[in-house]
């Protein structure tokens, strides 16, 4: 399931919903990304996330389909927020459910790496140093993190 939204979410409720009524699931892995209060040695006041509506949903659907192709998953959830966010607020959540732990753990890491470089979001940071905002530049490390998954071909259906 894909959700792109302004409002906050409750990771506990989201995890419960992901496994509701599916007793095949043996484990759920999740990642929640937060707004930090420091960035490059200066204090962050807030962050505004801009996105490309429709393309965001389309890309997240594609990323989710890729995870279902590569791993044996019983469920998947990607929530990405946009708009103005303050330090401590949640930006993104990825959760995957599977029979065995390796499928959910690996696919969760894969999804968060992939969405950083393939989902059309841009961050404008408001800091004590630059109140008008500074656009965050993409990091080569993120591209490297995405590309490493090109080489990893998981074996589906492992034992727990």
């Amino acid at each position: 399931m894909i959700r792109v939204q302004l409002e906050d979410f409750d990771p506990g409720i989201e995890i419960d919903n992901l496994s509701a009524d599916n007793y095949h699931i043996g484990g759920i892995s999740s990642f929640v990304g937060l707004v930090r209060d420091m960035y490059n040695d200066h204090k962050l006041i807030s962050m505004t996330l801009e996105h490309y509506p429709k393309m965001t949903e389309k890309m997240l659907e594609e990323i989710q389909s890729e995870a279902f192709k590569r791993w044996s998953l019983e469920g998947c959830l990607i929530i990405h927020r946009y708009g103005q966010l303050n330090p401590g607020e949640k930006i993104v959540m990825v959760a995957t459910a599977s029979l065995h732990r390796q499928d959910s753990l690996e696919s969760c890491a894969f999804l968060i790496d992939w969405l950083k470089t393939k989902a059309p979001f841009w961050k404008l940071e408001h800091s004590t140093e630059c109140d008008n905002g500074k656009w965050v530049e993409a990091k080569e490390d993120d591209n490297i993190a995405t590309r490493k998954w090109d080489k990893i071909i998981p074996n589906k259906a492992r034992d727990i």
Binding site: F31, G33, L34, L49, H51, Y52, K54, M55, K58, M59, H80, I91, V92, I112, L115, K116, T117, K118, A119, P120, F121, W122, K123, W135, V136, E137, A138, K139, D142
Partner: peptide
């Protein structure tokens, strides 16, 4: 809504978007 290259052919029915490299996630 598909990432493309600068040599991609376009016509009047297309939607073209320009943006910096993306920075989603945490």
């Amino acid at each position: 809504m598909e990432f493309s290259d600068f040599d991609h052919c376009i016509n009047n029915e297309d939607e073209v978007a320009f943006f910096p490299p993306v920075t989603g996630g945490g």
